[in-house]
Design a protein around this nucleic acid. Structure first.
Lengths: 77, 77
DNA sequence: TGGGATTTGTTCGTATGTATC
DNA sequence: TGATACATACGAACAAATCCC
């Protein structure tokens, strides 16, 4: 599911949807770390700003927890 | 002094006036930092674009100095 | 003790598109 | 047409926490 820059759906919401799906499917298991912001930037060819907006959405949904200096983790069931 | 979106005075000029007054009154002392663009956006419920236009006015008036990655500071007397 | 690498947190700089008046 | 205002997106710099050697 490559990200489309010409979509009506903002890039950051596309990424949030991708990560949300990986969490729902178990590809990203509870307590496991998400790829770092740097990794997500590279993998999707997008900016840090956009990556952080996506993660912020998931954080507000209670799906992930972020720890400064460490990373972002999938919330426990 | 809440900002009025239905005023004849543009929002960015209203914010510039507010900040100018805080500098003049000493509420914002020389060398002290202004609230970040992010803070000003939240506090006044306006966009970053508009916040930056307001700060640009003060910068042109020599009232503030902006440093990338750090913030905007009240100019020294 | 110290230093370097990695990671998230925060800030300003710039550009583009959309909508409204 | 131009000015205003918002949202999106990418860059860049600085700061702080963590980790490992």
């Amino acid at each position: 599911m490559p990200i489309k820059h010409d979509s009506a759906v903002p890039v950051y919401r596309q990424l949030a949807a991708i990560l949300r799906e990986e969490i729902a499917s178990g590809t990203l298991a509870p307590d496991s770390p998400l790829p770092s912001e740097s990794r997500l930037m590279q993998e999707h060819g997008i900016s840090r700003d956009t990556v952080r907006k996506a993660i912020e959405i998931l954080r507000e949904e209670g799906l992930v927890v972020t720890v400064k200096g460490k990373g972002t983790y999938v919330a426990e069931g």
